[in-house]
């Protein structure tokens, strides 16, 4: 960041009078300390609810409410044991279902979007311009416009209450945003590479698999991690398509906690909410670089 506050601007400009620099130094240190204090306060405030959830999930059920502190005197895991089985099926069923949808979606997006992006970025074909314009417009399209007819379609195919309505759209590259992301990336790759390969007799399949794909790993990583987060968090479409408890994913299972639980057993709901966000935090820890790149360059959420 290039914006210089008075503090850093002061240190970067050489100070001519050493005598005055001492007083200034103290002021700068104070100022910097104040800034850190402010930021730390901000971080604590921001993360407090999440930390409170974590701590509360490890408290005995009766002690969760009315206790705002983050201090844990005893360590109880019974909320986890209880929550894991509270919904009739072990929570692992829902985790497995979510994992299945997520993996299917990631594979779908990686394969279909990279292929489409290669065509848009490197090939010349009929109707290219209207196709490209349609692709861009479809990024902006709210899902609500298509959800009713899509639902009717899947209902007629007898595939409501399966994972297909959630995965097939990804296999068919309907997440146009990622196509756009990859097009931008491919356009940044030197065309000479393709041309050299073409002179060596490589066809488009070989150029795509052996040259472009290996070079676009960062774009693929960004796509994979955002697909993971969005699919893991997706509630709207999973709510619509999955009504059989056997098919429930984690968000739908958490929701049925709210419907089913009396207020006396919030502990289990808390514990399973923690379980639900652990994969997100892990993805964040492992893929931070690609996450930040993705947001900063394209405005992904």
């Amino acid at each position: 960041m290039r914006y210089r506050s008075a503090a850093t601007a002061g240190t970067s400009s050489p100070s001519a009078t050493p005598g005055r620099a001492d007083g200034r130094q103290v002021r700068l240190t104070l100022r910097r300390a104040g800034k850190h204090a402010l930021l730390i306060l901000g971080v604590v405030t921001t993360l407090y609810p999440v930390l409170w959830m974590l701590v509360s999930s490890l408290r005995p059920d009766g002690q969760i409410f009315g206790n705002p502190s983050l201090l844990l005197t005893t360590f109880h895991t019974e909320n986890y044991a209880y929550g894991w089985t509270a919904l009739g099926r072990p929570f692992s069923v829902y985790l497995f279902n979510s994992a299945l949808v997520v993996i299917g979606s990631i594979i779908g997006n990686l394969v279909s979007c990279s292929m489409a992006a290669y065509a848009f970025a490197r090939l010349r074909f009929r109707f290219q311009r209207p196709a490209f314009a349609y692709m861009l417009v479809s990024i902006m399209l709210p899902v609500h416009v298509v959800i009713v007819p899509q639902y009717i379609l899947w209902a007629q195919a007898g595939l409501v209450n399966s994972f297909w309505p959630l995965i097939v759209p990804k296999l068919l590259a309907t997440d146009a945003f990622f196509i756009f992301l990859m097009i931008q990336f491919i356009r940044g790759l030197p065309k000479e590479l393709d041309e050299a390969a073409r002179i060596d007799g490589a066809g488009h399949a070989r150029i795509f698999f052996q040259i472009i794909l290996p070079l676009m790993k960062p774009a693929l990583a960004t796509t994979a991690i955002f697909t993971f987060i969005w699919t893991w968090n997706d509630f709207f479409s999973q709510l619509i398509y999955l009504t059989d408890p056997e098919q429930y994913t984690v968000p739908i299972a958490l929701r049925s906690f709210i419907d089913a639980q009396s207020s006396s057993s919030f502990g289990g709901m808390f514990a399973m909410s923690v379980v639900a966000i652990v994969p997100l935090v892990l993805a964040f820890a492992l893929g931070q670089k690609y996450l930040v790149q993705g947001i900063a360059t394209t405005g992904l959420k």
């Binding site: 394969v111 292929m115 074909f125 196709a131 298509v146 007819p149 899509q150 009717i152 488009h204």
Partner: peptide, 27 residues
């Protein structure tokens, strides 16, 4: 590169017709 484009864009075209454009008109 019409033929190659069709191969690479096949999934997208199918998705665009069946899962977005069709539903938009139906909606």
């Amino acid at each position: 590169d019409n033929k190659a484009a069709l191969a690479f864009l096949g999934p997208w075209v199918l998705g665009a017709l069946v899962l977005t454009l069709g539903p938009i008109l139906a909606s």
